[in-house]
Amino acid sequence: MPRIFRHWMLWPALAMLLVFFLMPSVDILRASVMDPELTFRHFERFLERAVYMRVLWHTVEVSFVVAIVCAVIAYPVAYFIVQSPRRVQFLLLLLIFIPLWMSILIRSYAWMVVLGREGVINSLLMGAGLIETPVRMLFTTPAVYVAMIQILLPIQIVTCYSAMSDIDLGLVRAARVLGASPWEATRRVFIPLSLDGTITGMIIVFMLSMGFFITPALLGGRRDLLLANLIEFNVTQLNWGFAAAIALMLLLAAIVGIVVIRLAARLLLRALNGALAR
């Protein structure tokens, strides 16, 4: 960072955070415990009725699975792009960006066309004589996973790519020159250097998943209720207090989830380093 940087340059960003993030967050906190006097009944209700913890757990579970699968798929893709010539890189990134320009609603509807009873996959399978009655894919939990992964994958790929493109590939070459096998050079040099970006991507995907509600409502089965759906219902019923309490529980779960992802990353890094010491 050049010395020319001054703290006051951060002020616009800080002011924006204060007005558009911190103040509303404090307001949500206030709404959850002041209704109209100080009360914890909204949180008690959340903990007492089985439905809310179940939905919270399902939300966390779906978000973790989506984040992990996205990372596993995105990592080699980003690696492949980084290894490509500059011009090809640009083209590949463009291809990855295209679906991001479509609204989540449209992409969810598109999945209905693909997975439906009379949809593309069932028509193909039935036309080929492989099945006689349509396979049920739409309105199931796997349908939610497939769509959410497809929707969020580009974000993970791009985050991984930007971390990987900062890595000096000369370091990997140096490891090879010093006698490391290709896999060793990757494991000891490239993976540790690219891990941070991958983890950042996972956290972004995880947090976005925690707030999903259109996709599970359109593609999921009756059990695919996520916490955001319950917030929406309570807002339409003008039950701000309970909606705020649910939102805070969601925030809390997201923070715990992020800490868990970070800890897991540190363990992984230690395992890689341990291999180095041996």
Partner: peptide, 23 residues
């Protein structure tokens, strides 16, 4: 009836989509 209900819709647009798509 629960096991025979494949879709639980949340918007009017979706309710007719289900019929026209043959879901």
């Amino acid at each position: 009836i629960k096991p025979h209900v494949t879709a639980w819709w949340t918007s009017g647009a979706q309710s007719v989509q289900l019929l026209s798509d043959g879901e």
